[in-house]
Amino acid sequence: MDMKAATFTLDVKGLELPEDVRQEISLALNNTLMRKLGEINLTGKTNGGAAATGGNGLFGKVIRIDGGDWSRLINRHDFGPIFQRTLDNKQVLGAGIEQINQTQVGK
């Protein structure tokens, strides 16, 4: 799979718009981006099937965590905002995806 940095710049030359309209468009673009991100499946499996555990052999094991455990949390109030940052166009479009190149060996 040919992977490239997810950099998107939209420059509509000659078009001038009021701030509220620009913000509206920016929000709509963010929503589209986030929806498309949510659809991404790099696991090679369809229909939400379990991700590859061995792959090309470089990765010996993938640790899996029992989601049920985390879900049976004693204190539901522990959930909530973790970063007090607001979602804006700059933040979403500015985030890079880092390729991890590392050889891992299972025991």
Partner: peptide, 25 residues
């Protein structure tokens, strides 16, 4: 993002998820 070869592609900065993302994901 979990990738096919096994392992994760980490974002350099975590992204707040939106309702659209949750629905699609």
């Amino acid at each position: 993002l979990v990738r096919q070869e096994g392992g994760i592609r980490l974002l350099a900065e975590p992204l707040p998820v939106t309702a659209d993302f949750v629905e699609a994901a």
